[in-house]
């Protein structure tokens, strides 16, 4: 019985959780893949719906029973595929939702990741944004629910926020369709790499920094050009099984150097 309990969690051996197949999307010719991350209750799905309209379908993440929404829109003659990641507070723990979100940003290699944040609870939401920065520099921060913030008497300095974070920041009120064009524009800039982003990275606690100093060069020599060696080191130190497996099987560098090739569209319907 206890075995079943253990197995129903996240087992180590199951191939379904294999990061290499963690839900890649075929980018197709000239298409861009955009991931939508964010805390729960930030109006993330409203942003998703506002961007894609009726061009969406839901499925499941491969091997998981978590609903996965996918949609598309065109902006300036390019096709953008939008993946709605599960809403999470963090990417550090081992719940199914967090694993899916993290694996997609890491292994699915979206051209751009949009972190949808709640303007009325910015500090909580920026925590997630900072974690995403560690994984990928190709990020747009979308400060949503601006109407709500106005009602609460909050004023948010978007320029300053953008400067501090080092990535494009767009203010939206998706329910009122405010700021959507700006958002699409920012996504396009990041996806097409017209703008070099240098996202803010939190300094590590002192004791950990020493370990990172040693590990990061090792990882970089193993997988040159890896954008997130520091994050990989973090995860290894904390004992993240997926990242460890990726290092062991040497898929880490390959996955991140080239565009993913596996196709697993629309989940497993």
């Amino acid at each position: 019985m206890v075995w079943k309990l253990f197995n129903s969690g996240h087992c180590a051996e199951c191939t379904e959780c294999d990061p290499g197949h963690g839900g890649n999307v075929d980018p197709g010719q000239g298409d861009y893949v955009v991931a939508l991350a964010g805390n729960p209750n930030t109006g993330k799905s409203t942003v998703f719906n506002a961007l894609t309209g009726m061009n969406q379908h839901t499925g499941n993440w491969p091997g998981k029973t978590v609903t996965r929404a996918e949609g598309r829109y065109t902006y300036q003659d390019s096709l953008y595929k939008l993946i709605d990641l599960p809403g999470t507070y963090s990417l550090l723990s081992a719940s199914t939702d967090e694993e899916i979100a993290r694996d997609f940003i890491l292994f699915g290699k979206p051209h751009c990741t949009v972190v949808v944040t709640d303007a009325t609870a910015l500090q909580r939401n920026l925590n997630l944004a900072l974690q995403v920065f560690e994984i990928t520099p190709r990020v747009v921060v979308c400060v949503n629910l601006m109407d709500e913030a106005r009602r609460k008497g909050l004023k948010i300095d978007i320029h300053r926020l953008s400067e501090d974070l080092g990535v494009p920041v767009v203010a939206t009120a998706a329910r009122r369709k405010e700021g959507l064009v700006d958002l699409q524009n920012a996504i396009a800039e990041v996806a097409q790499q017209q703008r070099k982003a240098k996202p803010y990275t939190s300094p590590a606690p002192l004791a950990i920094q020493k370990a990172l100093d040693e590990l990061v060069p090792m990882i970089q020599s193993m997988a040159p050009g890896l954008p997130n060696a520091r994050w990989v080191a973090y995860r290894l130190l904390e004992g993240d099984i997926h990242v460890r497996q990726a290092v062991q099987s040497d898929t880490l560098g390959k996955q991140l150097q080239y565009h993913h090739v596996t196709v697993n569209r629309g989940g497993n319907r």
Partner: peptide, 11 residues
């Protein structure tokens, strides 16, 4: 192997 998997899983 299961023990080591458990160790990994528990961090």
């Amino acid at each position: 192997t299961q023990v080591e998997a458990l160790n990994e899983h528990l961090g």
